[in-house]
Structures are given as structure tokens and as C-alpha cells.
Simulated scan of single mutants.
Amino acid sequence: MVRSGLEEPLNTHADHFNTNYAYSVASYSKGSIFMEQLGYIVGAQVRDKVLLEYDTKWKFKHPNINDLIRLSEKVSGLKLDWYQEFWVNSTKTIDYAIDSVWEQNGKTNIRLRNEDLMPMPIDLVITTKNGSQELHHIPLDLMYGSKPAEGPIKRTEHPAWHWTSPTYTINTDLKLSEISQIEIDPTKRMADVEQANNVRLF
């Protein structure tokens, strides 16, 4: 849909879409991605709690996106108005990339680049040649916080990435020769439109 040039904002009135294709994708696929990606942003368990509370509060009523976002903020403790603005009110897309990797003073530096217009928090996993993994989490400054840790890999949390900054650099105590792979969003929950630049193999 993004590559077709036919995408329209998710909040477009059903009768106002220019094509049935755009309406169908916005109504079903993009709405579904909204919820899965919300789990990436706030944590899957928190997202599930949001859905349960949403059902309890709004069943047999007529909620809108503002009601869902407000409830999501209340449950998660995070600011999410930016998510509504970018994902629902616009057609801006996500494309994060591993820009460059280099070793300095025995540590490996990894510079990430936001190649598109929608900001996101970032999960990044470094896999070593012996199979061990490091999880690095970079919150988004617009959230005023970060999701709880997920999964079995110990997480290192970094300072927030300011949404106006095109690049962000983290480092690890691993030497470059010890690393076999670096990957952005290994769980594939972020709707990144160009996933080929999310992985760097060594």
C-alpha cells in the first residue's frame, strides 16, 4: 500500500476514501497493525491489559480513537498522542536502519539512522559468534518513559532518542570480531517499510 501511493490517513471517513483498496487496507490491515505495533511500543502484556480494560469500559458504546489512546496512556503510563498523530492522522512511514558499525577503544559503536518521517522506540539485538545475545532498548523521548522489559534476554536501556534527531549511537563492550549479527526489531512488530537495512551480518 505504501509503495502504491494510494494510502490515505487511517482517520479518513469511510465514504471519503478515493479507492476501495485504500479503504480496505486502512479499515482492516492498518488497524490490525496499529494494535500489534502498540504491543511493541508499550509491551505486549500492557497492550493486552489495555484491550481488556477497553472492552470493559466501552462495550455497547461508541468510542473513537481518542478514547483508545487516552485509555492506553492511563494503563501504560506512557504518552501516546504522537502515535495517534503519526499512525492515524497521517501516512508517514517508518524506516530505521543500521547506519554504521565501528570499533573504538575495545568497544563496538553502532549508529542507527531514522530514514523516514515517523519516530519510534527501538529494540536492537546483538548476537555474538558464540550464540549469546544482548538486547538494547532506546525509548522515544515523546513517550516520557519506556515499556517494561520483555522476554528472557537481559535488557540495557539507553537515554531517549529525540524524535528530531536523525541518528543515534549506542555502544557495547563486545569487540567487533565477537559479533555475528546486529538487528533492529528482531520480533518484527514494527511496521518498518524497508526491513533489509535492519540487519547487519558479520
Rank of each mutant, 00 (worst) to 15 (best):
M120F: 09
F34Y: 08
L124Y: 14
T19D: 06
E194V: 05
P9A: 13
D15T: 10
D173H: 14
K107M: 06
R155P: 00
T108W: 10
R47Q: 13
V88F: 15
S76T: 01
T167M: 02
K57V: 15
V50A: 03
F86N: 03
M35G: 00
T156M: 11
G5T: 01
L78Q: 00
Q195N: 12
K175P: 00
E194Q: 07
D99F: 13
P119S: 01
Q195W: 09
T172P: 13
E150L: 03
E36I: 10
M118G: 00
V88K: 08
L135P: 03
E178L: 09
N11R: 14
L80G: 06
S177Y: 07
D95L: 02
E85D: 09
Q45C: 00
K188M: 13
N18A: 07
W161E: 05
P186Q: 13
P186F: 15
W163Q: 12
K61E: 05
L135M: 14
N198A: 06
S90V: 04
Y83F: 15
S27H: 15
H137T: 08
L176N: 11
L112R: 04
V101K: 09
A22E: 03
I138S: 04
E103A: 00
W58S: 01
A26T: 07
T93P: 00
K74D: 09
T108E: 04
D116I: 00
S165N: 15
T156S: 14
H13Y: 08
P159F: 12
N130Y: 06
Q37H: 15
Q181F: 03
T167L: 01
T56M: 09
S27N: 15
I65L: 08
I126L: 11
N171P: 04
G151W: 04
L176W: 12
E7Q: 12
T156F: 15
T12E: 03
T127M: 09
I98V: 12
L124H: 15
I126H: 07
T128H: 11
K59M: 15
Y40L: 05
I126F: 06
L112A: 04
F86H: 13
M190K: 08
Y21N: 10
M35L: 12
S32D: 05
L80P: 14
P159G: 01
R3D: 04
I126V: 15
P152S: 02
P63I: 01
S32T: 07
P139H: 05
H137F: 15
V125T: 13
Q181W: 05
T108P: 00
E73L: 02
L6V: 06
P166E: 05
G5K: 14
R155F: 04
V50Y: 06
S24P: 04
S72Y: 11
N64W: 03
E53H: 12
H162D: 13
T12Y: 05
R155Y: 00
Q37G: 00
A191K: 12
F17R: 07
L112I: 03
T128C: 10
V75K: 07
K49A: 11
N20F: 08
N18F: 02
G131Q: 15
L80V: 09
N18I: 05
L201A: 01
V75T: 10
I65Y: 02
P186V: 03
R3E: 05
T187G: 06
T164W: 03
S165G: 03
G43F: 08
D99W: 10
D67P: 02
I182D: 10
M118N: 01
Y83L: 05
